[in-house]
Amino acid sequence: MIIEILKLLIIPGIFFLFTLALFYQWLDRRFLARLQNRRGPMHTGSHGTLQPLADFIKLLAKEDIEPEAVDKPVFRGVPILLSTISITALFFIPIWGVKAFVHFEGDLIFMTFLMTLIAILAFLGGWSSTNRFSTIGGLRAAMQTLGYEVPLSLAFIGPAIVAKSLSISKIVEWQASTGIWAIILNPLGFGIAIIALLAELEKVPFDLPEAETELVAGWQTEFSGRKLALLRFAFDLELVLAAGLITSLFLGGPAGPFYNIPWVGVIWFFIKTTIVVLILSNLRGLFARFRIDQMVSGCWKYLVPLAIIQIIFLQLVLG
């Protein structure tokens, strides 16, 4: 019992995920800065490694403004729910071995459900702020969900068909035991998942819900202090979640040479997620923002047919 609680709090649990989230935020910012020929954070800790932590503590210590017109219960609930849901979703990702901390048959479907909840919470956060920028940002977040949700789910079905299981842990186990990564059979699905997760994360080509040049800060405009700290933390966790999901479903999770020895699996996981985070931030540096109509129609016109072609291809190959 005590070991279980310690596990939950420290090693595959909250403390470890917190560190990982802050580290990936730093990696993302530094890599994007280098792509833009800048330096990025330099003077906080060694090469700015403590920058996300400094941002987090500063925001926690700042004044927390609640405008009079906001819908208070929802406005207070959104940041808390957003970060807890992100942490909950992360417990389904196998990090320290082929088995995740929590796993059951069908948790892939539960995962897509949690990711939809995250998008709906973004909408609720924008709606409850009753600020015109927040409202438009929240509506865009909901609109965007209509675009990327279907191709994302279709892309997740690919590895599930290959491994004949709807559990993330089982999919990783299958990849580890056979030595075949699902990306070999799902190259299209991998690309689609990366694009759709970029939209889920509200990163640059799809950052319409918080487009700062049009909407001040989108649905986050009214959040300040502790609430903003939790929102940013939730988004860092989501980055880990996105990278972890892609790694587990397509790149074999902690599988690699000698993955059965303790600590080796997590190193493989770490290397693979780092590569996925670098791909995500590379795409972020490469593209300019789409319009909302381009984004939604593009998802339905190109991503959904490609995802269906991917599944047909899988069925033909596997017979």
Binding site: Q36, N37, G40, A54, V216, A217, T221, E222, S224
Partner: peptide, 22 residues
């Protein structure tokens, strides 16, 4: 903010909303 001077080195980010800024 541009690459030559880059105030993000000191941890300064340009935010859109006054609620987020110091």
């Amino acid at each position: 903010l541009i690459p030559r001077y880059d105030i993000e080195r000191f941890g300064m980010i340009l935010r859109g909303s006054p609620r987020h800024a110091d």
